[in-house]
Write a protein that binds this DNA or RNA. Structure first.
Lengths: 244, 244
DNA sequence: TTCGGAATTCAGCGTACGTTGAAATTATGC
DNA sequence: GCATAATTTCAACGTACGCTGAATTCCGAA
């Protein structure tokens, strides 16, 4: 080995001591969880840590305790694996948010900004808190590619409908406010929310231990007040100044 | 060539038609701009597009129109190049924000949240709008690594002092409000701000052309109202509920 | 004028990457 | 029971990666 610097991160995947590699289709009683699922789990976690380019297919395969070639069998190539990771959780997330928004508008008499924002945010926080562990990785991954130039395509493909649903509800809460303002405000909300869900513990270190990013209940409460307050302040400022 | 999929992005760097590769130290009249600077510029732009792992040293060298080996001569290795990119603009940015905050507190009689947030945000927006083109890439890069688990180290090393300065000013604007709340609120601000400066044009597509992420004046105005409103709403909610 | 050091190119080392084809083993439908 | 399909491992291909040592050319100080 010749030096091999590049110390941005350095971590071997533990290579979970596979027992006896046996060729061919596995006996159906082999181990409940199928290789495809294990690959998605491993990839989810690794992509969340280092992004698409920072992970090699062999690392994913090792972490999943299967052969590399299985990635190409199940997902065609590395990009396919990435898409698989992304899609698996996008569907349930989008449904959960849609249901949450719908439940809110049908349960209340007069919709409020706070209520709408809560209905949009809560499913994510609840999944991160009480869903299986992969959700945390997934949100970290989404946060990462959301701030990436090439991530737009995927984000839009899966999440735009959801956002338009939110905007529609918000327009009922703030009648007469131009959509343009609501989109801007949503963009700010998205930035805050993704950083809160990213799992990076910036705020812990910044605040020297006063705040804990992992405490999502604390984050939920504050994010709600902050975003609702921001929305209201923005549209009232817009109304007062009467700009387009 | 064997197939070479991985279509997350596909782009060759144009390889700017180097003229006459001449060995040895260049004549001082060769071309004003030194290779070191050209490498930083090229790396800045490429890292901003695809992140640390998504860029190869050869791509950087080609874009800078110099030999790869120069990267290792000037920066020791790929990580060193990355650090070089990061540091070059961090220093002036931190100074600009410090000066801006200082100018604000000395120029006004009673500091406000809005004023403090403006003093913090404006230097970045102004640099992105009126600084040299590299600033846009730089902010895109910062936005990207800020949402990354491994980015914390660098972000903290360069930007924490600045944030503490902002928090101090904010505490004067909101006397009695606990620091904990201010740190949370800053975290939300940071998320919104970075997304706004990231150069990703999410909001353009989302709003179907109503909003333009490139219109930083529009973003500045709204980000200001939004964040100031959020800060105020958050600390008042905290005061009313009287929680720790 | 000389000479050490600064800045550059060149050619290549060793490794790890994404990907594949073939073989092996089991499951499933007729 | 038998053919076919599904799922896996194995061994390798060709390429591109990060990085380096040596050679080359020019600058600047003595």
């Amino acid at each position: 080995m010749r030096k091999r610097a590049v110390t941005k991160l350095d971590h071997k995947v533990p290579a979970k001591s596979r027992k006896k590699p046996r060729r061919g289709r596995p006996r159906q009683s082999d181990d409940g969880v199928k290789a495809r699922g294990r690959l998605l789990d491993a990839a989810e976690s690794l992509f969340a840590e280092r992004g698409f380019y920072g992970v090699t297919t062999r690392q994913v395969a090792d972490a999943a305790d299967v052969d590399v070639a299985l990635i190409y069998y199940h997902f065609k190539n590395k990009s396919g694996l990435f898409d698989g990771v992304f899609e698996r959780r996008a569907r349930p997330l989008v449904s959960a948010r849609r249901d949450s928004l719908h439940a809110y508008v049908t349960s209340t008499r007069a919709v409020t900004v706070e209520g709408a924002v809560a209905a949009f945010i809560n499913p994510m926080i609840d999944l991160s808190l009480h869903g299986d562990a992969g959700w945390k990785s997934y949100f970290a991954l989404v946060a990462q590619i959301d701030n990436t130039p090439w991530g737009g395509e995927i984000i839009h493909r899966f999440f735009d409908d959801n956002v338009h649903e939110l905007i529609d509800v918000l327009q009922n809460a703030l009648p007469g406010s131009p959509k343009k303002e609501l989109y801007w405000a949503y963009n700010f909300l998205a930035g805050s929310m993704m950083l809160a869900l990213s799992g990076t513990e910036r705020v812990d270190r910044l605040s020297q231990g006063l705040c804990h990013a992992k405490d999502l209940e604390a984050a939920r409460l504050r994010l709600l007040n902050y975003c609702a307050g921001g929305f209201l302040a923005m549209v009232t400022a817009e109304r007062l100044s009467g700009r387009a």
